[in-house]
Design a protein around this nucleic acid. Structure first.
Lengths: 226, 226
DNA sequence: AACTACCTGACAGGAAGATTACAACTTTGT
DNA sequence: ACAAAGTTGTAATCTTCCTGTCAGGTAGTT
């Protein structure tokens, strides 16, 4: 299993490479877009990990070139937080998954393994779901019990985070760092308000609620019978 | 084996550094967040010991930077008492373990050894258990005999302490310092009440009790046959 | 029995979150 | 370019329920 990592920040690239090597993958590392694309087109990688922001050619361009060349290598995108458009764009161009920086290495590893497991199949999984709730990552739209729900950027980001980590109690500090670019030292209630707005759309019209408050801690997305 | 300690309080840092040196580890000590992060990112440590409260950059930020750089160095967090959110946040970001100040040096040593033994594997165990009682630190929920039990913040903190130190008799003074931010000089019975409330949820509905009172000493969590 | 340590149920203050309204700012359409 | 509609953060108020206190009660110890 050989992975290509295209990442311009030397340190980041180095550690991705090292970490994945230790996890048992062969890795190749490109520090800029041109060489990255060149290597990617060689076609002998099982997975591409592309940073979006790159000198030379950006991640999208590489992805596009790869797909144009008829390669269906799975692609994992590394994107900045809050850049929803980037992600959607990436998925539209045929990326298979993406990760928002900063991320835990363990999560990267999980995604990498998942992508490799389901092979280079073009069955790109662009929806997340729980119970009768579904989230379409590309159309940026949710659906509950067949009913379509349009979401705003923030609502989308929040729901996506909740869905990806369903069952886990997400501290507000974590939510703040993933969905907003803040360290949660400020005394704001944006998160509560955002949750309220999300609930209004996905929970309020239905009997079994999915978003639950854990007082003093944060929020969970999960199905509860009672 | 080289350890990096990031701790701003000179005395504490000194103490840790010296103690760990004597235990046979090579140690490096940083007194503020910036130098700490800089050193941490060099990647040539086998374990990081991070204080949460730091001038410059706090422990989380360092951890985040480290994980973002793809390093999976084990991280042991030193957090203030009563900061439940801190701990969970740390675990979410990829810390492997944490210790609540003040702590016994022996315990620090035990954790350090355990972390080094299980290597840089991200196998951080997020659940504690005893008999048919389980506590999931991420989902932030207890379970007894399959039955789910919701806990409040204080109950959770208390049960976590008891579980981490199962079999030990914990003096009330210790409990007071770990779960509350108090020196236990005051004449309050918060602890008794808190224990009562915890018992109500985890012991009262079951035959074999796990929380035991040791008159004049404190409380233990353990299984007793008779 | 007396003393002490701990248990128990009730209560109230207050902290955490929910909800609503509003204003600043963007986007969209004409 | 202007108006209308939509999005998002801030702030004020309301609601919920957690948690410390207190006033007895109970059980262990001498």
């Amino acid at each position: 299993m050989k992975l290509l990592i295209v990442e311009d920040q030397a340190r980041t690239g180095q550690y991705l490479s090292q970490g994945l090597s230790e996890a048992g993958f062969a890795t190749e590392l490109a520090a800029d877009g041109e060489t990255g694309q060149h290597l990617a087109l060689s076609g002998d990688h099982d997975l591409l990990i592309l940073d979006v922001m790159l000198p030379g050619r950006n991640g999208w361009q590489i992805l596009q070139a790869v797909r144009q060349a008829g390669l269906d290598t799975p692609v994992l995108f590394l994107t900045a937080r809050d850049a929803v458009e980037d992600r959607v764009h990436g998925l539209e161009l045929g990326a298979d998954d993406y990760l928002v920086k900063p991320f835990a290495f363990s999560e990267l590893l999980a995604r990498v393994r998942s992508l490799l497991r389901r092979g280079a199949s073009p069955s790109l999984d662009t929806t997340l779901s729980l119970a009768d709730l579904r989230l379409d990552l590309i159309r940026r739209r949710a659906e509950r019990a067949g009913q379509r729900i349009d979401l705003t950027a923030k609502e989308f980001a929040l729901l996506e985070l909740l869905l990806r980590r369903q069952g886990e109690v997400l501290p507000k500090s974590l939510i703040a760092s993933q969905v907003w670019d803040m360290n949660f030292d400020s005394d704001t209630n944006v998160i509560e308000v955002a949750i309220r707005r999300l609930r209004l759309k996905i929970d309020d019209p239905h009997a079994n609620k999915l978003i639950h408050t854990v007082r003093g801690m944060g929020y969970v997305l999960e199905e509860r019978q009672d």
